[in-house]
Amino acid sequence: MSDTKKFLYVNRKAPYGTIYALESLEVVLIGAAFEQDVALAFLDDGVFQLTKGQDTAGIGVKNFSPTFRALGDYDVNKLYVERESLEERGLTEDDLQEIMYEDEDDDWAEKPSIRIVSRAEMAEIMAEQDVILSF
């Protein structure tokens, strides 16, 4: 379809200190209804959004990290995470939760949505987009 545009949501903030992360996720879910080619980028403190084991019971806010696992149902299955941002923060891919999607074109095989990319690859991904929304 020629009128499908590439949308990239850029996430650079940690999850609970500000409202940016939650707002971004809500916009992604709402925007998914428009059936565009959607991808998410996580860099700088944004990589903290995907850590596993989040438990917000003690701080009185909603834990929205499980919602990332629903993104596959919304046909959002490209979550680019920047390796350098992880390393700078002492994290590795193992610290992130597992997020899977089912590939419709491959007999519904389960595949990981998270793709670790280098900073240079991230810059290239950004340069391929029609629209970039930053949070």
């Binding site: 209804a33 499980p66 919602t67 696992r69 149902d73 919304y74």
Partner: peptide, 18 residues
Amino acid sequence: DYYEEYQIAPAVRVLIKA
């Protein structure tokens, strides 16, 4: 159950697919 697992109420399209 969906809400329990993902903390969201799914959109109609997503609900029907699920």
